[in-house]
């Protein structure tokens, strides 16, 4: 699929904001009373977490052909994940704003935490709906997998945790929470590294079982495209296909894993072993690396998506993967009678 950068920025930036806000509310509920986190930290990090989804929302408007009537997308929430995403995004930003307002005005803890709780609920709804939007397209095997929603949540939490850790180190240097957060960042980055590796492995070996024979309804092993018809290239050959060689794919996969997860993992481990140092700069670098890497990751996620429509234009990437049923049969597995 063509990597639409507005959608890349929307999902990555909003995801980071959601992860940050979820962590903030949890830290608020657990540690504010005991004084292990300061209201100053909550406020600073809260404002940062509000900027992320707002930037994502601004980017999303560039995707629409008619943004002025984008509000109409709330109508079909019963059937469309996109509609649910359009509802959850402003709801999440609204609860974030309400939470910060209650924090600033010094309102009772119960109200503030309730607004925060609703923010967490809408953040999870936003993660789920923006991931299911892709996972629900059953004609793109690379997207229609459980790894898509899991990774959207996981990567959002990882980038959010790194940004929260940076804010903690800047606003309350030398406190225990910053030290604990380095462990959290390390854990999430390691987990993300494994899950993205699994997703790349899945994409490389996914068996689609569909070919030009199905697309044309002709049972002949030799079918060759001769003419693509009027005005080539056009929407169908540009929207659904983006050229990617095996070598480029390998390089980009390595960059994604290295920049977004492996380097931040090393940084977080370094921070965890050196609790005495001032580490605001280190964690802001880590957060920047994760977000940059995730932009590359989300772009590659689009490019690796292989739509069955490409069969008609000879653009379908046929993986060298054998049909599992027949390859097993060849190895001597008894066939069902």
């Amino acid at each position: 699929m063509y990597p639409e950068m507005s959608l890349v920025f929307l999902t990555v930036l909003a995801g980071a904001g959601q992860g940050m806000f979820i962590l903030l509310v949890i830290l608020d509920a657990l540690f504010l009373k005991s004084g292990e986190v300061t209201p100053h930290f909550l406020m600073a990090a809260g404002i940062a977490s509000l900027i992320f989804p707002l930037a994502g929302m601004a980017a999303s408007f560039f995707h629409l052909g008619n943004p002025q009537r984008g509000w109409k997308a709330i109508f079909k929430w019963k059937q469309s994940w996109l509609s649910r995403e359009v509802i959850f995004l402003p709801a999440f930003v609204g609860f974030q704003f309400l939470y910060l307002l209650l924090l600033y005005s010094g309102a009772p803890e119960l109200y503030r935490l309730f607004a925060g709780f609703l923010g967490i609920v809408t953040a999870m709804g936003l993660y789920l709906s923006s991931a299911m939007l892709y996972a629900a397209i059953r004609f793109i095997k690379e997207w229609a997998t459980a790894l898509t929603p899991i990774n959207f949540v996981l990567f959002g939490l990882t980038s959010g945790a790194a940004a929260t850790a940076a804010a903690a180190h800047y606003t309350m240097p030398g406190m225990t929470i910053g030290y604990l957060l380095s462990y959290l960042v390390a854990f999430l980055a390691a987990f993300s590294l494994v899950m993205k590796g699994l997703a790349f492995q899945f994409n490389a070996t996914v068996y689609s079982g569909i070919s030009i024979k199905n697309a044309l309804g002709m049972n002949n092993p030799h079918i060759r495209l001769m003419d693509t018809g009027t005005a080539y290239p056009h929407f169908n050959t540009k929207e659904y296909f983006f050229p990617l060689t095996r070598r480029q794919n390998g390089i980009q996969q390595t960059l994604v894993l290295g920049i977004s997860f492996f380097l931040p993992l090393l940084m977080a481990l370094y921070a965890a072993w050196n609790p005495a140092l001032k580490l605001g700069g280190l964690f802001s670098t880590a957060a920047f690396l994760i977000v940059t890497g995730l932009i590359l990751e989300r772009r590659l996620f689009f490019i690796q998506g292989n739509h069955v429509q490409n069969l008609y234009y000879g653009n379908y990437r046929q993986n060298a993967v054998k049909n599992p049923a027949t390859s097993k049969a060849k190895q001597g597995t008894p066939r069902p009678k």
Binding site: H63, L64, G65, R69, A73, S80
Partner: peptide, 27 residues
Amino acid sequence: DDCIGCKYCSWACPYGCREFDEFEGVM
């Protein structure tokens, strides 16, 4: 009049039979 030009329908079509109009911003 209701289409916002998000192109999501074209992703969902297995036959590639929807085309986006860049000028009017609708499918």
